[in-house]
Amino acid sequence: MEWQRLIVSYIVGFVLLNVLLGLMAYMTWFERRVLARMQHRVGPNRTGPFGLLQPIADGIKLLAKEDIVPANADRLVFLVAPLLSFALAPLGAAVIPFGDTLHLFGIDIPLLVADINVAVLYVLALGSVGVYGIILGGYASGNRYSLLGALRSTAQVISYELVLGLSLVGVLILSGSLSLQDILREQQRSLVLGPLTLPNWYILSQPLAFALFLIAAVAETNRAPFDLPEAETELVAGYFTEYSGFRFSFYFLAEYINMIVVSLLAATLFLGGIDGPIADGVWWLAIKALFFLFFYVWLRATLPRFRYDQLMGLAWKVLLPLALLNIALTGLVRLWGIGAL
C-alpha cells in the first residue's frame, strides 16, 4: 500500500508539473495580452488565433539562441544557477490541495502531491532557497550590474521572506495547523456574524495578514513595483544581464512559475482554495488564482518602481511592525476565544 500511494503521488506530481509548465507558458501570453490592453496596444496576435501559439514560438526562439558564457564568469556556477532557480520554482505547488480525494479504478487518488504537516513552512523554505539561483547567477556573471542586482535581490528576499512568514502566523494561530489541508478544512466552515453567514475564509478574519501577504508575495517574486533586482532602467536586466538563450528563459520562467504558485497559495490560504459558493472544485481555485495573476499584471501596468532604500524601509519600518501587531491581536483574540483571558 505504501508503494501504491507513492506511485499515485508521483503520477499526480507529474501531471501537476506538466500542467504548471503549460500554465506558465500561457501566463506569459496572458500577461502580454492584458498588459497590451491596458496600454492601448494589441499584444501578440499574429502567431495562431489570438496569438495563442506565441509562447511556443518564443520557446523555440530561445532554444535556438546561442548560450553565451562571459569570459570572466565563474563558469560552473554561472551554468548551474538558472537551473537552480527553475527547478525550485514549481516545488511549492506540491503541497497545494487541488480537490478532494478522487476515486478512480478503485484507487484513492488524493488531488495533491504531498500532504506535509509543515506545508506552510515548506513553501517558505523553498522561497528562501530559491534566492540562491538569483544571487549565484548575479555573482557568477562577473558583471557589476548583475552583482548589484544580486545584492538587491538578496536583501529584498530576506526582508520580505520575514514579512511573508510573519503575515501567515495569524492564519496559523486561527487554524492551529501548518498543514494546508487542515487550513483549507478550517475555511470550509461557516462564519456567523449576526444575521450574516459567511464562509470562514481567512481574508475575512485576517484582512491585514492578507494585505501583508499580498505585498510581500509581490516583492518575493520580484514583480513590479518591487522588481528592483531586474530593474531594466537602472540595472539593464539585473542579475540575468549576462544570460542568453535558454538559461535566460529559465530565470524568466521561474519568475512566472513563482507567480502562479504564490497565487495558488494565496487563494488556498486566504480565499478558501477549492471552496466556492456552488460546486466546490478545482475551478474555484483557478478563478481565484487567475484573479491574483491579473492583479500582478495590473500592478505592473500601473505603478512606478520603488527605490532600494524605500523598499527596505517599507519592509522593516511598516510591514514588519504591522505583521507583529497582527500576530499579537490574533493571539489575544484566540486566547480570549478559548477562555484563557
Binding site: L35, M38, Q39, H40, R41, A224, P225, D227, A231, T233, R300, A301, T302, L303, P304, R305
Partner: peptide, 16 residues
Amino acid sequence: HALDIGALSVSLYTFR
C-alpha cells in the same frame, strides 16, 4: 521619465 522610474503605461499613453 515615467518609464525610467518604472511606470510602464504612461509612456504608451503619451506616445499615443
